[in-house]
Design a protein around this nucleic acid. Structure first.
Length: 548
RNA sequence: GGCCCGUUGGUGAAGUGGUUCAACACACAUGCCUUUCACGCAUGCAUUCAUGGGUUCAAAUCCCGUACGGGUCACCA
């Protein structure tokens, strides 16, 4: 029995041949240097921070090279598939403004000419190539049960030899085609394995985009190509898909380095051109015990990218952070080119970190603060509106009702050379400005600092309101009035005087200002008091300075 | 256990043989400025690049060993 006859027996329903698919998916017509890259997650419903980093880079490179970025769903493992899992991924990408040129755009729909972009719909394609491999004598059906494999592993462990289905251990590899046909006709279950021509003693070299040369032994394992459920294993699907979809650059986590020998072997056997590979360091975090470990979705809320959307951290800030992690010289570049688009940055794989970088939320928040501080009040208002509309409806209606007032609040100490950096996220803003709204103002917990005596507080406030406060004062006049108030009540209006002779005074102008500040806002730390009072207006000020 | 990768301050890291080689950023500390906070400014923070040995006139940078950390060895991706 020939290999061809065996192949026909195994795949009677495969009608196309390899040429059909090779013609169906021609080379892409792109300019020189254009990168075709992809994000290829399992439909688990969410994107992990580490995946986001690679998705971002995978989309970034095509963008700066006029290439193509597509989304392929790898759903060959039923256990990883979650209901509506594709939608979750699409939403996460959309929330981070990572746009795809091709691929899945919903649970069932896709755009682009190189589809289907979901592996479960590509069964015929994988079978066609598997059939070819069998015809060529490069693959064979394996009838070993899980039990058989388990026993084999135990023996190997006992003998302290390498574990795996290879060489003489690969019992099904040496069956005759007649024996194979016989078993198949008897209804024995089987899978398809590669007949690896590799030798463990031989070395192969991976020219990794980020790590440079890595030397590894050639693959000699007869890896599974098609599983019992008829779907391909990752390695096989990866090679077929990335060839047919004309991927030029494969970026993935470093956990894939050790399976590169399988991939390169498959590319050679199938006579496909191999893409370039870049293996990214894992995103790590220090856990409670001080140990370094992979950021995990189960334990770390910040691992899920939806977390940032919910917190209202601007996507631009996350992108800036990802780029600073990805390319160590990005920060310096951005500093030197503050007005340039990030897409002008010359990304360099060689500048990527080899080791897993530690996820640093402090740094992210700092980037976010800087980013928000540079926006105009109107932009912040608009973004805040979008955010609260989704996550804080009450506040949304409030700021919508008082649009101009809110914009003015957001503008305090903003549109100047050195703006304040109070807000790290849109979710943060309410905690900084709630007291400006009567609807939210709550006089239950005043944070008076030094002066806590009720009578003294009331004396200061009453004297100020009755004798000095004038809503039309400009900033200098306003401040001079506060000074006069201090003089009258025997508080030092000049800090230098106070520092020289503190015993001559009840306190100083800072203490008095704090009393006014706290009465109006309940907080001892706020932006410029004059600005706040201007916005609050006379009515609120009169009301809030009456403290019981 | 085999194979592979990594190890520079609290964190991210620059730097791949020699003119400050330990940049820059975040964090932290102190001081100044200041009506609070923030901003800003100034200063401080690794005599040393996991460790031992070797090559060299010269190494964080090259070589070997050791330790530690990570990954991978599935009909998971």
């Amino acid at each position: 029995m020939t290999n061809k006859e065996l192949a026909d027996l195994i795949f009677p329903n495969v009608t196309h041949d390899v040429d059909y698919y090779e013609k169906k998916y021609p080379e892409r017509n792109l300019k020189d240097g254009a990168v075709v890259s992809r994000f290829a997650p399992s439909p688990t419903g969410f994107v992990h921070m580490g995946s986001l980093l690679s998705a971002f880079i995978e989309s970034f490179i095509p963008k700066i090279t006029d290439g193509i970025f597509y989304l392929r769903i790898e759903d060959t493992d039923g256990k990883r598939t979650v209901e509506n899992g594709i939608s979750g991924i699409i939403k996460d990408l959309k929330d981070f403004d990572i746009r795809i040129d091709e691929g899945m755009i919903s649970e069932t729909e896709s755009i682009g000419e190189y589809g289907p972009y979901i592996q479960s719909k590509r069964k015929d394609i994988y079978e066609t190539y598997a059939k070819k491999l069998i015809s060529d004598g490069l693959a064979y059906p394996c009838f070993c049960t899980e039990k058989d494999l388990e026993i084999m592993r135990e023996k190997q462990e006992h003998k302290k030899t390498r574990i795996g289905y290879y060489g003489n251990w690969a019992k099904c590899r040496n069956l005759t085609n007649e024996e194979r046909a016989e078993k198949i006709k008897n209804g024995e279950k089987f899978i398809i394995r590669l007949k690896s021509p590799g030798k463990f003693e031989n070395k192969i070299i991976l020219n990794d985009l980020v790590r440079g040369k890595i030397e590894m032994p050639e693959n000699d394992i007869d890896v599974v190509l098609i599983k019992g459920d008829g779907l391909p294993i990752y390695h096989f699907a990866h090679v077929i898909d990335d060839h047919l979809m004309k991927t030029t650059h494969v970026l993935r986590g470093e956990e894939w380095i050790s399976s590169y020998p399988i991939h390169t072997q498959l590319f050679n056997l199938l006579r496909f051109k191999e893409p370039k590979y870049g293996h990214l360091g894992l995103v790590m975090k220090i856990d409670e015990t001080g140990a370094r470990r992979k950021l995990s979705k189960r334990k770390d809320p910040e691992a899920a990218v939806s977390y940032y959307h919910e917190k209202g951290i601007p996507i631009e800030a996350v992108k800036l952070y990802l780029l600073t992690i990805a390319n160590s010289n990005f920060e310096v570049w951005l500093d030197a080119n503050p007005t340039s688009s990030i897409y002008d940055f010359k990304f360099d794989f060689k500048k990527m970190s080899d080791s897993g970088s530690l996820f640093d939320i402090e740094k992210l928040l700092n980037i976010s603060k800087n980013y928000i501080s540079k926006l105009s009040a109107k932009e912040v208002y608009q973004n805040l509106l979008n955010y609260t509309k989704e996550y804080d409806k009450d506040f949304y209606y409030l700021i919508k009702k008082y649009e101009d007032y809110t914009i003015n609040i957001l503008n305090i100490e903003r549109e100047q050379k050195k703006p304040r950096k109070d807000y790290a996220s849109y979710g943060d803003i309410k905690t900084h400005i709630w007291y400006m709204y009567d609807e939210l103002f709550n006089s239950d917990k005043y944070d008076f600092q030094k002066i806590t005596d009720k009578d003294e507080i009331n004396l200061i406030l009453k004297t100020y309101i009755d004798k000095y406060y004038n809503e039309n004062d400009n900033k200098d006049e306003w401040f001079n009035k506060i000074k006069k108030l201090c003089d009258e009540l025997n508080y030092a209006s000049n800090m230098k005087d106070y520092k020289e002779n503190p015993e001559n005074y009840k306190g100083n102008i800072a203490d008095v200002s704090t009393v006014i500040r706290v009465s109006l806002t309940t907080k001892s730390m706020t932006p410029d008091l004059y600005e706040i009072m201007k916005l609050l207006g006379k009515d609120r000020i009169l009301k809030r300075t009456k403290i019981n």
